[in-house]
Design a protein around this nucleic acid. Structure first.
Length: 769
RNA sequence: GCGGGGGUUGCCUAGCCUGGUCAAAGGCGCGAGGCUUAGAACCUCGUCCCGUAGGGGUUCGUGGGUUCAAAUCCCACCCCCCGCACCA
């Protein structure tokens, strides 16, 4: 008996769920489904009697637990009917008890009432079942067949025009007819609604979820237009990292509407004006950053005495502290202190959270701040991150792919774990954490640590004043470091500083800049990549160059330590513990965590040396390519550098390109025009006589990084002989043969191979014998 | 359906906004060599195709277009992932 009016026949489960929907349910009889078999039921609306059939696939937990059989259009029903006709019930079991109605069952024929592509070849359900090759009602593919047929008929099907069956719905689209039938039945009181879940939902505790109607529900009205406007305004002024996610916030602000903000059970704060309700946690968490600040004072306060006026003053600065102190029984000083502390922290500079909270918490956070606080206290930034995957999969106990934190820290150390998490992904991506990565990071860091020890020792052996490198005031690379290099040059013999030293210090400035930029944008992965890998490469090159000249550790320790000093400072946020250790080894004062972040010292950037070293690297690359392709073992390598007129031409083209003219024809025209407009005659002549040279130079310049084009222009003619001669020890050691460097002599280019591709500036001709 | 993100060289992933630095960074995997009693680890080199001179060819989901020049800009199409609620 439902609502004291009607007798309903539903599953036990449905009877229970109806009670949650605030229906008055009385269970009068419990009937076994089998008792109904063979009886007949009347179909509402059409008023026809139909037999009641058994079916194994009907879920008593779904809806009323009773379904209408539509064998023409529901693959499940069709298959079940076929099975019954063959004397088979669910799961292939032959059921004899239905023998009495078998004759009736045999008479049942599917009635096709939807026309679509599928109805052309007979009964649609049968068509689709045959296509899938299904022959039993427990075949899982029935699910796919059902989906396919349902969605096709729903969007494209029409109700057939047989008025005896389809009544006034003939010809309507299924989509429209479905709505109309429902409405008509409700209108004529032939049906009722029962709220239910589309799919079974389970709670984390394992229990099945049901739909429950709550009375007197409280809502937060996020639909309010003015409120939305303010939220947008706040978002527009905020920094969102990464930017990609901003559009999602925009959408959510518009999409959000009334949200139930309280519930009847669970943990949480009681709703102040209705103690029967508990504030739903996502609605409660919107300004708890503000609460964090005053939380620690909670015990010092007379909580019972506190009312809205206290909060108005602390959070909004409204009211008179003296009178509030009196009425709330809190000391005025304390109130002032809390207010002061609140203003110290607020506005929120950065809220950092997971991307799954964008459609709720993070957006509520914006909404509620703009609702409560004046504009100057609105949040400034939101940072959104992805989640952590383990070996490419979501971590879960059932997959067994979790490593307990304590265990991981014990085995690998927290530094390596932090770093491998940070290096595995940028902000928004899911970070794929692997043990391989963890191990490799750990080893990388251990090596770095031993390098610190190695060079710290080298310095101590020499017992000179190099240690001061790490003793900047406050430990920082402040302005004081700006003159480091020049000052040293004065104090020491000129020849103690080699090109590689200058180069390494110059590279360091680039790395500081690039890493700082990355950190400013919270591109942690990029920053860490610089610190761990790129700077390592630089150091390797430096060591290679220095060692080839026979310089000992003590001679290069000063430079290396300066480099390490900055590296450790920047690495410290990523791996704080080992960095303190390295800092101490390097002779730093205090804690590296308190030391200043390095600053770029422009005077230490030396583009001539930068270009020089990259010239050496390119020459080596080319030599290696030649050796690889020819398969020869060099006995002598001759490097011929471009002669003066080529430099003249090159620099002219470079400046044309730097002015934005990159097209060959245009460049050529400008080169030639140069002579008539008072420019250099010789350049015009060269250009005219060697057009292919011009072409090669343009190509070469265009394949150079733009910054490098500019610095090359400012350098002018690079003394390539001097640069390359400095690298002769390295080259001879690498290739184990004699190496000579000279300016090319076009008048007597003896070697045909060299002549074929003669030297360009920054692109010497190489001859290997 | 609505909204967001994405398809890159064996894999994962940078680059795309601001076109030429791109045959394309880094990591993993794989191969060769070094080290080692051996292995693990580590180091060096290689890892689209062709090539006995630093070169050439074909690539960045598909098809068009713009440009001297496209992974990058424009248009169309195909495919994949995520969210869509009162639940943290």
């Amino acid at each position: 008996m439902v609502d004291g009016k009607e007798k309903w026949l539903v599953s036990m489960d449905a009877a229970e769920r109806l009670t949650y929907l605030n229906r008055d349910v009385h269970v009068e009889h419990i009937i076994k489904g089998r008792e109904l078999i063979g009886l007949r039921a009347r179909v509402p609306l059409v008023n026809r009697d139909v037999p009641i059939l058994p079916a194994g696939f009907v879920d008593p937990k779904n809806g009323t637990g009773i379904v209408m059989s539509v064998p023409a259009h529901a693959p499940y029903d069709y298959q079940a009917l076929s099975d019954l006709k063959a004397g088979i019930h669910a799961a292939g079991v032959v059921i004899h008890e239905y023998a009495s109605i078998h004759a009736d069952i045999l008479k049942i024929e599917p009635i096709v009432m939807i026309e679509s592509e599928y109805s052309k070849d007979g009964v649609p359900a049968s068509v689709v079942i045959k296509r899938y090759g299904i022959s039993r009602q427990d075949d899982p593919r029935l699910e796919y067949a059902t989906n396919e047929l349902y969605s096709h008929e729903f969007y494209k099907g029409r109700i057939s025009s047989d008025p005896s069956i389809t009544m006034e719905y003939s010809g309507m689209s299924v989509k429209d007819a479905r709505e109309k039938v429902r409405d008509d039945m409700l209108k004529r009181n032939l049906a009722d609604t029962m709220l239910d879940l589309a799919k079974p939902v389970r709670c984390r505790c394992g229990a099945e979820c049901v739909v429950k109607i709550l009375e007197d529900q409280w809502f937060i009205n996020y639909s309010d237009r003015e409120w939305k406007r303010l939220a947008h305004k706040c978002l527009d002024s905020m920094q969102i990292l990464p930017e990609d996610i901003r559009d999602e916030f925009v959408y959510v602000i518009d999409w959000l509407r009334e949200r139930a903000c309280a519930r009847r059970s669970g943990l949480g704060t009681k709703l102040p004006w209705d103690e029967n309700w508990i504030i739903e946690s996502l609605s409660d968490s919107v300004i708890y950053m503000a609460y964090y600040i005053i939380a620690k004072y909670a015990r010092m306060l007379n909580v019972d005495g506190i009312d809205d006026r206290f909060f108005d003053y602390v959070l909004l600065g409204v009211g008179d502290p003296s009178s509030i102190a009196e009425s709330c029984k809190v000391s005025k000083d304390l109130i002032e202190q809390i207010r002061e502390e609140f203003l110290y922290y607020y506005p929120v500079d950065s809220r950092h959270s997971g991307r799954d909270l964008v459609p709720n918490h993070l957006t509520f956070f914006i909404f509620n701040h703009v609702a409560i606080f004046p504009q100057e206290l609105w949040p400034r930034q939101i940072v959104v991150n992805g989640s952590v995957l383990m070996d490419g999969k979501k971590m879960s106990k059932s997959l067994g792919n979790i490593v307990p934190l304590r265990k991981a820290i014990r085995e690998y150390g927290s530094d390596a774990i932090r770093a491998s998490l940070l290096i595995s992904a940028e902000l928004l991506q899911d970070a794929d954490f692997t043990l391989d990565m963890l191990k490799s990071i750990r080893e990388k860091v251990e090596r770095l640590y031993s390098i610190c020890i190695q060079f710290a020792n080298a310095t101590r052996d020499k017992s000179n004043s190099y240690n001061r490198v790490c003793e900047g005031s406050g430990g920082g690379y402040g302005q004081e470091h700006g003159y480091e290099h020049e000052q040293k040059q004065e104090h020491k013999q000129e020849d103690e500083y080699e090109y590689e030293d200058v180069w390494l210090m110059s590279r360091l400035q680039h790395m500081i800049k690039s890493t700082t930029d990355a950190m400013d944008r919270l591109r942690v992965r990029e920053a860490l990549n610089n610190l761990l890998y790129i700077m390592d490469q630089d150091m390797q090159w430096y060591l290679k160059r220095a060692k080839s000249k026979g310089r000992g550790d003590d001679e290069i320790a000063s430079t290396i330590i300066q480099f390490l000093d900055a590296r450790v400072r920047m690495l410290s946020p990523f791996m704080p513990f080992i960095c303190e250790e390295m800092w101490s080894v390097l002779g730093g004062k205090g804690f590296v965590s308190m030391a200043e972040w390095p600053k770029v010292t422009p005077s230490m950037i030396n583009s001539t040396v930068d270009e020089g070293e990259s010239l050496i690297m390119h020459v080596m690359e080319d030599v290696e390519k030649i050796i690889k392709v020819t398969g020869m073992k060099p006995s002598r390598i001759t490097i011929q550098v471009a002669e003066a007129w080529k430099w003249e031409l090159y620099l002219r083209i470079l400046s044309i390109i730097n002015d934005g003219v990159t097209n060959y024809g245009d460049v050529m025209r400008m080169l030639v025009k140069g002579s008539s407009s008072g420019g250099s005659d010789s350049i015009a002549t060269y250009a005219k006589s060697k057009p292919e040279m011009v072409k090669r130079m343009i190509e070469s310049i265009l394949s150079t990084p733009p910054e490098s084009r500019l610095s090359r222009a400012s350098i002018g003619v690079l003394d390539e002989v001097r640069v390359l001669s400095d690298a002769i020890p390295l080259l001879e050691k690498e290739y184990n043969c004699r190496v000579e460097v000279m300016v090319e002599d076009s008048s007597s280019s003896s070697s045909s191979i060299v002549a074929k591709k003669s030297a360009l500036p920054y692109r010497p001709a190489i001859y290997i014998a």
